[in-house]
Amino acid sequence: MKYAMLIFPKPGSHESLPPEQYAPVNADYLALRDDPRCVGGAHLQPAETATTVRHNRGEVLITDGPFADTKEVLGGYYVLDAADLDDALEFAQRIPAIRLGGAVEIRPLVEIPAEAAF
């Protein structure tokens, strides 16, 4: 089963780390990327770089900033091919954002039947 691990770091928790503490955190993120169950993922640039597009009365509206008006913003994600939710939970608990005060939301991906995929 495939799962998206949506990482919501505690705001400022990673940026505020001195280089000698950031290095092992970063190494942990990279090691998770190398886990055989990990089939994708990305580290997103900060929310200040986001651009949001939507329709407003038929017009395309482009605005600066992230869509959700909350403090917690998506910082990155992994896509995992795991045996089951417990397997995915085990992986999720090793994501450094958690021990730095953030959270990880696990969302199963919609499975696309073979015939429908093109």
Partner: peptide
């Protein structure tokens, strides 16, 4: 079903 909650007794560590 959707989240893949396992039908299993958790391993000792859990």
């Amino acid at each position: 079903k959707a989240a893949g909650i396992p039908f299993a007794v958790p391993p000792d560590r859990l």
